[in-house]
């Protein structure tokens, strides 16, 4: 599971000055749950996810993944975490099978285990047909599956996906959302970020609305509806955005 407590991330930029990307954010992602961070571009979603996956360190606050602190025990955190983001690219000249071997070895799995996991994952993600084709020759959907397979090679129980359906066609996006649901059935903790309301509505058990680095509301869809007395997530989001002067209508 993931626990984020009072997390703040500040960037000091020469050009832009001091930027508070994430401001005192707290939330948790439980086992067997899909938690969605919903927010527009620049809200701090990717920064939050990068801190959870140990790519960045929080300026203030603590994040624990499976009970391990992301700053003090990053390797232990990464052992149980699968991270995927749309801005991460794969090596074009390698095949998905070679990538699985490479990342399996980097995660200190034995070759036997890698072989077994490759079989399981390729079956599960329906990748057998393109397992030995170079990534450079694969379609977007196939690439996304290959990227997902890599993040799952070490069988993590925490999965963090940044904009998992971003740039995908309808069919591949559907496959990915189905996968997320299946991970949940397998009792994994799943954290996704998205700016697409329908994805949040359809997939997430709980949603956190992030605006200008601040978590404005957290709850299940029903809880949010009750709290804001609105039925539509989009209306809730825009109400919060207006309050925060995020948008002008």
């Amino acid at each position: 599971m993931i626990e984020a407590k009072n997390v703040t991330k500040i960037f000091d930029s020469r050009k832009k000055g001091r930027i508070v990307a994430v401001n005192d954010v707290s939330f948790e992602v439980r086992e067997g749950e899909i938690f969605g961070l919903l927010g527009p571009n620049g809200a701090g979603k990717t920064t939050s996810l990068r801190m959870i996956s140990t790519l960045m360190k929080p300026t203030k606050g603590t994040i624990r993944v499976n009970g391990f602190d992301v700053v003090k025990e990053p390797k232990k955190v990464r052992k149980g975490l699968g991270f995927l983001t749309s801005d991460m690219k794969l090596y074009e000249s390698l095949t998905p099978r070679e990538l699985l071997i490479f990342f399996g070895r980097l995660n200190h799995l034995s070759d036997d285990v890698i072989e077994q996991r490759t079989e399981e994952i390729s079956e599960y993600l329906d990748m057998k047909e393109f397992l030995d084709k170079k990534v450079g020759k694969l379609s977007t959907g196939m690439r996304q599956k290959a990227a997902i397979s890599i993040s799952l090679i070490h069988d993590p129980n925490v999965i963090v996906f940044d904009e998992p359906t971003n740039g995908l066609d309808v069919i591949t996006a559907h496959t990915v959302t189905e996968l997320l649901k299946d991970f949940k059935e397998r009792n994994k903790s799943i954290l996704i970020s998205t700016h697409v309301m329908s994805v949040a509505e359809k997939v997430c058990d709980r949603i956190g609305i992030l605006l200008k680095g601040k978590l404005k509301a957290v709850g299940t869809l029903d809880e949010l509806r009750e709290q804001f007395e609105m039925t539509d997530l989009e209306d809730i989001f825009f109400t919060l955005a207006r309050e925060d002067d995020e948008i002008h209508v």
Partner: peptide, 12 residues
């Protein structure tokens, strides 16, 4: 190319 990130989120 954006391939560095995927390297860094492993146990290496």
């Amino acid at each position: 190319k954006g391939t560095i990130g995927i390297l860094l989120v492993n146990q290496v």
